[in-house]
């Protein structure tokens, strides 16, 4: 485990609306916990009632507001590795994909789940873009792709508060400063406002702002 869990079991249970939801969660977690010790000998992706189907149905049983927390906890309980995470991401709705992205720092130590981050950053769904710039990305994404991720947040209106380790990664990044300055110039030339967040991250680079 490289990072603390986003949600503990006790925290998730406290969020749930009633006993039925708590009972559903207990079963789902037990189901998920069996996976690492008893991997299926043959692929059975469509069998009913596996923890992966519960992963999809979490919102309907635990409340849609709690779906992210429940799904992330399920992934942790199942100790989902890159292969499982990739399958759930590929088969997942946007909300399920977001949960996979959030679980990455907890479950994957190296850069081998970066393809999921890159996929999310190619999307234009701001829910996915925001989830793709978390702590896992801060550790593993290469500088070029990371700069484009920051710029994409500015483009799509995703707050830079979503970008993990923004200050640390932006510090001393002259290339990022240049890209931000150029973007600001493009907005200004078009008579459009420059996003507030742009100035904030430009300051974090520590580079001297050029003429905006």
């Amino acid at each position: 485990m490289t990072h603390p869990l986003p949600w503990t079991r006790a925290e998730v249970e406290a969020l749930l609306p009633d006993d039925a939801a708590r009972a559903w969660l207990a079963e789902a977690l037990a189901d998920a916990a069996c996976v690492p010790t008893a991997p299926p000998t043959a692929p059975a992706p469509y069998a009913a009632d596996t923890w992966e189907l519960r992963f999809a149905a979490a919102g309907r049983h635990c409340g849609h507001d709690n779906a992210d927390a429940v799904r992330t906890l399920l992934l942790t309980e199942a100790q989902a590795g890159p292969e499982t995470l990739t399958r759930l991401y590929r088969h997942g709705s946007a909300a399920e994909r977001r949960a996979v992205l959030w679980a990455l720092p907890t479950l994957v130590d190296g850069p081998h789940a970066l393809h999921l981050v890159e996929d999310a950053l190619r999307s234009n769904d701001t829910r996915l873009v925001a989830a793709a710039v978390g702590p896992y990305t801060a550790v593993h994404l290469d500088p070029h792709a990371w700069r484009h991720a920051v710029l994409k947040c500015l483009f799509t209106g995703v707050t830079l508060d979503a970008v993990a380790s923004l200050a640390r990664r932006a510090a001393g990044d002259g290339e990022l400063a240049r890209m931000l300055t150029d973007y600001a110039a493009e907005r200004t030339a078009a008579g459009r406002e420059v996003p507030d967040d742009l100035g904030r991250v430009l300051t974090l680079t520590g580079e001297e702002p050029k003429e905006l």
Binding site: R60, N124, T126, V129, T156, G157, R187, R192, E193
Partner: peptide, 23 residues
């Protein structure tokens, strides 16, 4: 049992820029 008709009001249609096009 899955219909949810309470659409949250769209947040941040980014001024002067298309969220939909995303850069």
């Amino acid at each position: 049992g899955r219909l949810r008709l309470d659409v949250p009001k769209p947040e941040g249609l980014h001024e002067g820029n298309s969220v939909l096009r995303g850069g």
